[in-house]
């Protein structure tokens, strides 16, 4: 059932273990993401999918197993975090734009501070990534002046400006109403079409089915079922059958 991570994967997890106190959140999780692939992590709340995603960018330290991301050994204590995070972009459920900076400053901050880009170059870059998410006119707005959907698109643009090799999306539409969700999903679809490697935790089953090359269904800290998007319509395990059958599959 579980796929062996191959060496040329962008992201690979092998037998990853993680506990919070006595609670075992990840219990031998393995999966891999190839270049240009879109992987959707699905499962009930508490199944460990968000924790698995956060382990990839080392927002959580693992207790055991191996994680390799763009050649970085993330499970090792001596991993170069700043190098890892230049290769990995992450977008959060709560957008987390910096409220004291304009959208342009939000975007140019890291390219200037981390990559040493000149201010004028960074500004050109900001315009480019904002055009990608359809927000060119919001260059000089502050985050509070934007709708939730616009804030999330700006957060995606901010990540894109670092030109990551893989993007992580952690329930990025969970705080949005259906209309705003649609505008954010459209941006992610475009990224997928452009060949961006992505790992996303999502509750949007219809979206996962439409965009994901592969689905990983997590259940009680384990990868319970994995396969192409078609497993959502013809699941083989009773747990996934129940999960997609309980109204999670939006058409």
């Amino acid at each position: 059932m579980q796929q062996n991570p191959s060496s040329d994967s962008i992201v690979s997890l092998r037998d990853v273990q993680k506990s919070f106190g006595s609670l075992r959140v990840l219990d031998g999780v393995s999966f891999a993401v190839e270049r240009g692939e879109v992987l959707a992590l699905i499962g009930r709340s508490g199944s460990g999918k968000s924790t698995a995603l956060r382990c990839i960018d080392r927002f959580e330290k693992v207790d055991g197993g191996e994680i390799v991301v763009c050649g970085h050994r993330v499970d090792r204590p001596d991993v170069d975090l700043r190098a890892l995070r230049q290769d990995v972009g992450i977008v959060f459920q709560s957008y987390n734009l910096f409220p004291h900076l304009t959208i342009e400053q939000n975007i140019t901050l890291a390219p200037c501070a981390v990559k040493g880009l000149a201010n004028s170059q960074a500004k050109d870059l900001a315009r480019k990534v904002l055009a990608q998410v359809g927000l060119e006119e919001k260059l000089h707005a502050y985050p509070e002046q934007l709708s939730g959907g616009q804030q999330q698109r700006a957060a995606i643009a901010r990540s894109l400006a670092m030109q990551p090799k893989v993007m992580l999306f952690d329930e990025v539409t969970s705080a949005l109403d259906p209309e705003l969700t649609a505008e954010v999903l459209k941006v992610i679809e475009q990224l997928a079409a452009d060949g961006m490697t992505m790992v996303m935790v999502t509750h949007e089953m219809g979206f996962a089915k439409g965009i994901a090359d592969r689905i990983v269904f997590m259940h009680r800290g384990k990868v319970h079922e994995t396969g192409p998007a078609s497993i959502l319509t013809s699941p083989t395990t009773p747990e996934l059958t129940q999960f997609v059958g309980t109204g999670n599959l939006k058409s």
Binding site: D57, A83, R85, V88, F92
Partner: peptide, 15 residues
């Protein structure tokens, strides 16, 4: 989450 967003953008602790 503000710390995490800044960390995710590869900013150093001082930055």
């Amino acid at each position: 989450p503000q710390w995490e967003a800044a960390e995710g953008l590869a900013l150093s602790r001082t930055q």
